[in-house]
Amino acid sequence: MRNVPGFSRRTVLAGVLAAPALVSPALVTRAGATETFVLGTWGGDYQRLQLENIELPLVRQLGLEAVIDAGDEAPRVGKVLATRRLPRGPLDVVCVQAVQAYALADAGVLEELTPEKIPNLARVKQALGTATFAPHIWSPQIVSYSPERVTSPPTSFGDLLDPRYNGKVGFPDNNFFYVMMAAGLFAGGSANDFVKAKEVMTKVNANGLRLYPSTDAGGPPFKTGEIDIGMMWLARISMWQNAGIPVAAAFPKEGCILYVSGMVVPKNAPNKEAAFKYINAMLDPAAQLGFARNMGYLPTVTNAPLTGKVAEQLALPDPAPKLIMPDFAVTTKIQPEIADWWKKSIQHG
């Protein structure tokens, strides 16, 4: 300190002590009449639709207001795991895919959800939920294709291997794990057959596979003619169709892997009562239909039948396709290994 002219420990400490006086007005929080809870969710359309269809019409009138913690799923799951030993966790409601919900339940960090706590759980389609996971939306994975350039609609995942589509096959990279399950289902007859899945995906990659950095980036290439065929959720196809993108859905004969996303409550959630009320509102038929109309995802409750254009767009074919729920006991353990293989062999291959 002696070497710096005019710089002494006392003056520096004085500055440190004075600093809170400058910032303290900013730290004064709003004292509101409503009770708050923290909702860990994805940003973008999903968060906006949660606000429009769940919070504003159904939750605010209960005197509750959600504080949003928006971000990607993996950091959210990481946050729940990292804070598991704290008496009060950072999140009350955590939005996750079923695959991650199973992993969190396996780690023993989730509160059990029952119809006594959440009355609307009684009307949930049993196959979609678990004892700790309330399903919000679901959609089957289908073969997406351009009805303008693909003359005969695809019938299975195997169409992605057709040399006619060389350089014209593509999908968003972030769906890789579900695409791998679809590849296993096609090549080995089981969504768990990741050995066969790797073999067939290597061939799809050699057929000029194009990967896109986000889900939204996967739609416009059908319009520009960059790709003719890919894999996607039925929900996204209806969203893209509504946005004027010429794309259609074909149900693979070997079956469709299901995407299910919903909500969980950590055991150390600070405001569990509010979390239960929010999840109950999420399962309300009006909120469920709002998501079907705006996002194309199918309702997870039995008392929200679809009607009109939405029903037509999201109708499953007759005879009904095979719907395959991922085997979560397997997916939880193998996902990191598949992610590593995908990065090195498909992205870098």
């Binding site: 002219p5 005019g6 002494s8 006392r10 003056t11 520096v12 500055g15 600093a19």
Partner: peptide, 16 residues
Amino acid sequence: MKPSPAIAFLGPATCV
């Protein structure tokens, strides 16, 4: 040299 009071402002920045 007498310490300048302005140097006190270095404290918060250093801590941050």
